[in-house]
Computed example of a mutant assay.
Amino acid sequence: MLAVRYHEHGGPEVLQCEEVETPRPEENEVLIRIEAAGVNYADTVRRNGDYYPVPTVFPAIPGGEIVGSIEALGAGVDHLEIGTKVFALINQGGYAQYAAAPARGIIPVPEGLDPVPGLALIVQGLTAALVLKDSAALGAGESILIQGAAGGVGILSVQLAKIYGARTVIAAASTPEKRELALRMGADLAVDYTRPDWHQQVLDATDGRGVHIVQAMTGGNIFQESFECLAKFGRMIVYGFASREPGTLNPERLLPSNHTIRGFFLGDYFSRKPDLINATLAELADYVSDGRLRIHMGGAFPLSGVGEAHRLLEGRRTQGKLVILPWQDD
């Protein structure tokens, strides 16, 4: 089969399209013929050798989010059928034509959901929903600032925040095109967080009170500036550091206004809260089906185009969901 691999950490140039052996499903695994693989910022973090909670083993096939059809069943798998369309999260191996995946983590594609755009609901959709509902505990009538509001997670977060009852959704994005997209998706205000006065715009929009929630994925100076936007008893949920610059904050500053900063890592939800994962995915699929949640596709690439997909993502020149189509010709 064809797969993209890298044998050392580095930039997009380390990604090579290679002929490799098709995996065989081991006990309690299934083999999936991959229809599409999601491109996520975590893939670039691991490729670059930056901090990631799970170690990378070389040679590595990137990609942890796939959709496709079950091709074969390993020993001990008797609750799934060959030919079933499924989503799967795997440690690595998604940028390929086939991948083996643990059977316990397989999620059948909900009826009526287009599987390729539906892939946006797995990492990005579940991240957006669980950050809002579980980590941030967004309440009706609250306000929220969403960083990277035109990205894969952000564009769904803008819509879900409104569905979940937010009164004011403030989208932060770096270009006019991205801000316009966020407004079309339901944001009440869009700010340019490359401007020095952007956080003052957030305060002005909330009558000086600040927002109840900040959904943070940028890091660096934006981390500190976003903290200044929090209202009393405000919560900041950190799910990424796209700038790859650390954010620093003296914890004493949390005390006077009862602020909370909390981290989010989706992987632990799959292993520790599978019922919540399944219920949330079903909820998201229903929102797509009834038109309340729109999936915005940002681009599809063949295996030979993975390097370009990573360059666009790291350059923050994308909007919405990026996917790899491993059977597509150049």
Rank of each mutant, 00 (worst) to 15 (best):
G220I: 03
E252V: 04
A231M: 05
A279F: 02
G263H: 03
T260H: 10
V211W: 11
I237F: 03
M236D: 04
L254H: 02
Q215Y: 09
G234L: 04
L230D: 00
G240T: 04
H259G: 00
I222M: 05
N258P: 01
F264G: 12
F223C: 04
R253F: 05
H212G: 06
Y287I: 02
F264W: 08
H199L: 05
T194W: 03
I261P: 01
R209I: 03
P246N: 13
I261M: 07
R195L: 13
D275M: 07
V211A: 05
L281M: 07
Y287G: 01
Q200R: 15
A279Q: 14
K273I: 02
T206L: 08
S243P: 01
F241V: 15
D197Y: 11
Y269K: 10
A285F: 08
A216G: 11
D204T: 01
N250Q: 06
V202A: 07
F233W: 03
G219C: 05
P274T: 06
E228P: 01
D275F: 04
H199C: 06
F233L: 06
I277N: 08
P274E: 05
E283P: 00
L203W: 06
G208M: 11
G210L: 03
E228R: 15
P256D: 12
F227L: 02
R272C: 04
R262G: 00
L203Q: 10
Y287W: 15
N278Q: 14
G234F: 07
L203H: 05
E252L: 15
Y287P: 00
L254D: 04
S271A: 14
A285L: 08
F265C: 09
A282H: 12
H212C: 01
D204F: 02
A216N: 15
D286A: 14
W198A: 10
D197F: 09
I213T: 03
H259E: 00
E283R: 15
T194Q: 14
D192R: 07
C229Q: 08
F264I: 09
H199F: 10
G247T: 10
F227K: 04
Q201H: 14
A231I: 05
L281G: 02
C229I: 07
L254E: 09
R209W: 09
T206P: 06
I222C: 08
T260C: 05
T194M: 13
F233C: 04
D207C: 10
D197W: 11
Y193M: 08
V211Y: 09
A282N: 13
G267T: 13
S243G: 07
T280M: 06
D268N: 13
Q201G: 02
W198C: 10
S243R: 05
E228D: 13
L254Q: 07
G247F: 11
E225A: 14
Y287N: 04
L255H: 12
T280Q: 06
L249Q: 12
K232W: 01
F233G: 01
G219E: 06
Q215K: 00
L284W: 06
A285G: 10
R253K: 15
P251C: 07
R272W: 00
P251V: 14
V214T: 05
A282E: 11
P274S: 06
T248D: 09
P256C: 11
G219V: 01
A231R: 03
V211P: 03
L230N: 00
Y239R: 12
A282C: 07
